[in-house]
Every structure is written in structure tokens, then in C-alpha cells.
């Protein structure tokens, strides 16, 4: 579903991604790990189309279409969702209103009928129940005055409602205590399905205890230096990122 080949990207003239290649198939959960500054968040932002990032080389296709040529809103309509590391506050805009505008904009772009407020409310109520969301959060302004944990849960809630085909979670675990982490992970696990792919970006192995990935990739200095299954994450946890760096020249020789 997602195919990244030799992706080079920079921001502010500085090259961050240096030839990254990766494939995600429907139903797979891929974890991207790596030290700070490796380019993890850049990858998420480039895929979602955040302005300011310049792709200098390489291709990204989503279901065969050139993802890099699409506006952010078109990518969303195509089914790409980015759960933000730092969700943004929009004062005065009601959360439910925002979600309905988003869902209907996507549906319209896909040529589907828009939901009226009754249908939408029904859907929201069902999702609130599924996700164990505090219904009160829906009546507040988008992320305004939310705690760190509430913001992250709201991201997962949005994801549940928008039902993307590819969900990118950018350090969704950062700043969460263990209870909030478990809730967020449970929300994500509930959304795992054979036709949905996940890209879980994280600094710590901890999250992967709860969201068990099919593949783990280590990103260092703008490129994937090692790939494996869930065990790789545990080894990383035991040895630290320095271990990968030490092994890298050896592999290159092999």
C-alpha cells in the first residue's frame, strides 16, 4: 500500500532523510525506532505533506499513486492519517464540529455522501463508547486546555472516526504515563485490521509492549540501518542505539 523508495528530504536546507526505503502492506504494523535527530518525525511529516519539507530525491506511492504530488487534504482523503506528536489547539472551534467538517470533507473528496448531523452524532457516540473517550471532551474546543494525555487520546479518537487506511503515529507515547499509554495502545489495537497499515514512530520500546509490531526498523542518520521483527525492539532496549551504530559497519562489509 505504501512504498517509499530512496527518499531524500530536507528542511531549512538541511538534509534529514538520506535515501530511505520502506514498504508497508495492508494489515501490517511497522515500528520506526531510532535516536533523537534520526529523522523519525521528518518521515511522518513528509508523508502527511507538512509545508516546509523539501523532497530532493526518491518516490513515495500510496496505492500506486504519487503521494508526494498531493496536497495534505488530498492525502487525508486518500486515507493517510498522521497522529501528531504535538496536537494543535484551535480555540473556539468545537471538537465535534471539527471532526464532522473533517469527515465530510474527506467523504466529499472521495465522492461519498456527506453525513448529516444526526447520522454523524450517532457515529460519534458509537466511537466514543468503543474508544472509552470522555464524552465531555467532544464539547470542548479542539485540544484547547487538554492535558497531554487527553490530546493524544483525542488523536487516536480522530483516527478511529476517520478510519484511515494508513495511520502514522508520531511519538504518540511521548509524555504519557503508563495508564494513559495503555489506553492509547488499546485504542490503536482496536483499529488493527487486515486492510489498515500502521507506521508507529517511537523513541522507546515501551509502547511496543502494548502495540506489538510485525516489523521493527531502526532509523539512524536519515536512513533505515536495521530491520527485524518485534525482538529487535527488545534488543535495542537492552543494548541502546549505540549497539546498532557499532554493528552497522560490520554489516556493510558483509
Amino acid at each position: 500500500m505504501l512504498k517509499i523508495e530512496n527518499l531524500h528530504a530536507r528542511i531549512g536546507g538541511k538534509e534529514i532523510l538520506k535515501g530511505l526505503s520502506l514498504q508497508v502492506k495492508a494489515g501490517e504494523v511497522h515500528a520506526i525506532m531510532g535516536p533523537n535527530g534520526a529523522g523519525k518525525s521528518t518521515l511522518g511529516n513528509v508523508l502527511a505533506g507538512r509545508p516546509g519539507y523539501e523532497v530532493t530525491e526518491g518516490t513515495v506511492t500510496f496505492d500506486g499513486a504519487n503521494l508526494l504530488g498531493m496536497e495534505p487534504e488530498a492525502r487525508a482523503a486518500a486515507g493517510v492519517f498522521l497522529a501528531f506528536q504535538y496536537p494543535v489547539e484551535i480555540p473556539g472551534v468545537n471538537n465535534t464540529y471539527f471532526l464532522r467538517a473533517a469527515l465530510n470533507a474527506q467523504r466529499k473528496a472521495r465522492g461519498e455522501a456527506e453525513l448529516d448531523s444526526v447520522e454523524f452524532l450517532k457515529l460519534v457516540r458509537a466511537k466514543v463508547k468503543d474508544m472509552g473517550m470522555t464524552p465531555e471532551l467532544l464539547n470542548r474546543a479542539v485540544n484547547e486546555g487538554f492535558s497531554g494525555g487527553e490530546k493524544k487520546r483525542n488523536e487516536v479518537f480522530q483516527m478511529a472516526l476517520l478510519e484511515p487506511r494508513l495511520a502514522i503515529l508520531d511519538e504518540t507515547d511521548s509524555g504519557l504515563d503508563i495508564d494513559a499509554l495503555k489506553q492509547v495502545a488499546a485504542g490503536v489495537n482496536a483499529l488493527r485490521s487486515p486492510d489498515r497499515g500502521f507506521l508507529v514512530i517511537t523513541h522507546y520500546q515501551r509502547l511496543l509492549d502494548y502495540i506489538v509490531p510485525d516489523f521493527v526498523h531502526v532509523l539512524a542518520d536519515g536512513t533505515i540501518v536495521e530491520s527485524g521483527d518485534a525482538r529487535l525492539a527488545r534488543e535495542l532496549e537492552a543494548h541502546g542505539y549505540a549497539w546498532v551504530r557499532e554493528r552497522r559497519p560490520a554489516e556493510a562489509d558483509a
Partner: peptide
């Protein structure tokens, strides 16, 4: 820009 991108990444033009 963050607010704008946040909305756009959810599908809102």
C-alpha cells in the same frame, strides 16, 4: 502554519 496544517491533514481544505 501548525493550525492550518493540522486541519488540512484531517482533510479540511
Amino acid at each position: 502554519d501548525d493550525q492550518l496544517f493540522y486541519c488540512r491533514s484531517r482533510g479540511i481544505g
